[in-house]
Design a protein around this nucleic acid. Structure first.
Lengths: 154, 154
DNA sequence: GTATATGCAAATCTTTTGCACCCCT
DNA sequence: AGGGGTGCAAAAGATTTGCATATAC
């Protein structure tokens, strides 16, 4: 997409546009670079690494440092969630209305990622709070296993 | 501890000695370097980073690369577990009999770590297996919150 | 004796940062 | 106009790797 036209185009994409609104709310500036990043982000169905996102945006995109800076900002504002699949590379995905808190199951052979919608942990956190004295408890949970396709190869 | 005497001394420390037995079982060589690493490891009450371990062993210890190589090996043999506290630094702890699978709660302010003994997830994994078709499911779960001491500072 | 382990240094990879310049609001 | 935001390059940190040497078995 041609730069400069992105802000206009964003209006036709509701997921993207609501993100733009969120940026405005938080007094974050809306730039072509940010729009191209967010445009890729809203299309993902699973967490994406910064390197992957950088490759997808290609020459229309922006510097890696800009993506790192934006993602740190968005994480601070709770608009994206950082996920760790245990390989030392940070992955990110949107945390907007229809994409509330959830987990994943990752195939240890082929890295296929499947979303796990239910989160069963909230009730447990209460008990942990009582016992440990901690408050404002959150959690990170990922499942690992062997996906159906890889089971066939065994 | 003086090098060369470690293998003898190991026999007086049951936690360390059972680890040595495990190495022998798997045809891994028992060196002074490995003993000094494992000696520190068995004394920990929470996951330790490789840098921390390297500093504790001090000049009696070994090269960082040796620790990295040993830990990758031990992880492959399921003798230690890698833990991620979300800061991009790998932490490790023993996975021997009395230290079975468990989780942690980490203070987001001061990084205090408290062990969470119960693991409530096993039953959930069964349901996820049924629904997703994945098998051999494992999981990584960490809790984050504000510890009692940091609550007082707020 | 042989396979494995180690030290050292260099390389790799992810992420952060300093700084001059640019642009959204 | 002014405070972010960006690109570029350099720096910082964690981890891995190649290779010659050393050592457990």
């Amino acid at each position: 997409m041609e730069k400069g036209k992105r802000i206009e185009t964003a209006k036709t994409n509701s997921a993207l546009y609501s993100l733009v609104e969120a940026l405005r709310d938080k007094s974050l500036k809306i730039t072509d670079e940010r729009l191209s990043i967010l445009d890729v982000l809203v299309k993902q169905t699973k967490p994406i690494t910064i390197k992957e996102l950088h490759q997808i945006t290609g020459k229309q995109g922006c510097d890696l440092a800009t993506i790192y800076r934006l993602f740190n900002l968005l994480e601070k504002h709770k608009l994206i969630q950082r996920t760790d699949f245990g390989d030392g590379i940070a992955r990110f995905e949107l945390l907007t209305a229809d994409r509330a808190h959830h987990h994943h199951i990752i195939c240890i052979y082929c890295s296929t990622v499947v979303k796990v919608d239910e989160c069963f942990i909230e009730s447990i956190q209460e008990e942990i709070a009582n016992r440990s004295g901690f408050k404002s408890i959150t959690h990170k949970l990922e499942f690992f296993g062997i996906c159906p396709r890889c089971q066939k190869k065994e």
